[in-house]
Design a binder for these strands. Structure first.
Lengths: 266, 266
DNA sequence: CGCGTTCTTGACTGCTTTCAAAGATGGTGG
DNA sequence: CCACCATCTTTGAAAGCAGTCAAGAACGCG
């Protein structure tokens, strides 16, 4: 069937190539773009970021079936939700980038629905929780919108896997990553730092590494992008977007806050 | 690429064959299996169900990008989240069964992330909302767990579409539907009433109707199930389950309530 | 500079799609 | 009660996209 069934014995997930850490401030700023935060809300985040926790690449952050201890904010690095079948097939359910939340649940005694694994070295911190009622800081609203966005990306993944060709899947995925990195990472001149091997991309897109490779070559041949050493450069974003239907996610009707940031404007 | 690109002009979604309505009480009972409800919580649900609203098959219940007016409970009938590409390809993102919630959001001014369409004639009612703090009735907790379950099904869909073969997809999907119907519909002797055409199933599983047909025949030939007129009968559930890895969803660590019902025990 | 990982390439296989048309099925009206 | 019709299901043959296997090249790290 699809995907690698047999893997070498070792945990050959990806290179441990040292990744320059991105700026934690950008991760915090992402939450501010989701919902207007009060000065207090921002300082709560900054306080939390002063007690960072480091996680090494390939480590499991949460495991499926285990109780969720706390809500974390990713300050830098990439993680992914992953599910592994007993014959070795692997599906990456989604990526988690700086500014994204881990364990952002509603129920009282949450249990992790999927395993989450660090793809690179990471820095995380506890998400500040406040007096439940009120939410005067805007943090709860930001977390709620982050959760809605995550749901949006899940639906997008399903459509991608169910109805798009390999070329379309790649294009759609790259545009999604571009959009998300633009929120939390300094994306300049359409250059995206994507610290993933083609095998990881294949596991996310439901393809084989070999086919991801050939498809990426097609995108390069048609001059839509360049890529080298974990850096993807979008050359012709319009052409890339024309391969698929691009829609900016809108998950709330709230108008832009004082600082002008709003998901709907993205 | 995959799926039907061209469709006949009409909205040939599915037959309007009259479906006997399931029992609304079962829909309400489902919520009680998710979290222990107080007597007050149950009666709030029963009150709400006394003001039912009917929705005809094929009608859109919510539309992507439109604000979400209220939270609804499905009392009977099936709906689905759907996304349609501009060349006519269609992906069904998930099914919504009796006892499931619609518009179960956390943020303040939610906007629908996907279109939701009635697949059969439906009966719904407003979900009772209470004073936010406290949740003495257990309803908020039940809604939260319902939301976590929905997330679980999304991850399952992604794995299904990304890494399972056609045969495995069908097996996995049928077992999921079985599990869900068992919660809200009287499933007796492994007989499932599934009011879907093979084309709808194909749009959910990322296959073509023709291939769904052939794959279902394989399942019948190997004596795992029978099916006729919207009724699927599981003959050899163990054999069906052996095609895939089956895992019961566990989304909360809460122990069983007084009535013994808990998601973890399912 | 050497080694392991990752990327690239080629040839071949096969699952799934595509296209087309014939059979069932269920509801409706005569 | 039966004929009719739209919809849905089933079948066959052929084409195609993506997978599989294997080996060589390139890359990055120590």
């Amino acid at each position: 069937v699809k995907g690698y069934k047999k893997r070498p014995a070792g945990l050959d997930w990806m290179s441990t190539r040292a990744e320059p850490e991105s700026i934690p401030e950008n991760a915090i700023a992402r939450l501010g773009t989701l919902a207007p935060l009060t000065r207090e809300g921002v300082s709560l985040l900054q306080d939390a970021a002063r007690s960072p926790r480091r996680i090494a690449a390939r480590h499991l952050i949460v495991e499926e079936g285990q109780p969720v201890a706390q809500r974390l904010i990713i300050l830098s690095g990439w993680a992914c939700r992953v599910r592994i079948l007993n014959d070795g097939r692997r599906q990456i359910l989604g990526f988690m980038l700086p500014g994204d939340l881990l364990g952002n649940c509603r129920q009282k005694m949450p249990v992790a629905v999927t395993t989450v694994m660090a793809l690179t070295n990471m820095v995380v911190c506890a998400a500040p929780c406040q007096n439940a009622q009120g939410d005067e800081t805007g943090l709860e609203e930001a977390f709620a919108i982050s959760s809605a966005l995550e749901e949006h990306y899940l639906f997008r993944s399903i459509t991608r896997l169910g109805r798009l060709s390999a070329l379309e899947r790649l294009a759609d995925w790259i545009l999604e990553i571009h959009e998300r990195l633009a929120r939390c990472d300094g994306v300049v001149h359409s250059k995206l730092r994507v610290p993933l091997t083609q095998e990881v991309i294949a596991d996310a897109l439901g393809l084989t590494p070999v086919h991801v490779n050939r498809t990426l070559q097609a995108l390069r041949r048609d001059e839509m992008l360049q890529m080298r050493g974990g850096l993807i450069t979008l050359i012709n974003e319009a052409k890339l977007a024309s391969l698929i239907e691009y829609r900016a996610p809108i998950v709330t009707a709230a108008k832009a806050g004082p600082d002008g940031g709003n998901i709907a404007d993205f």
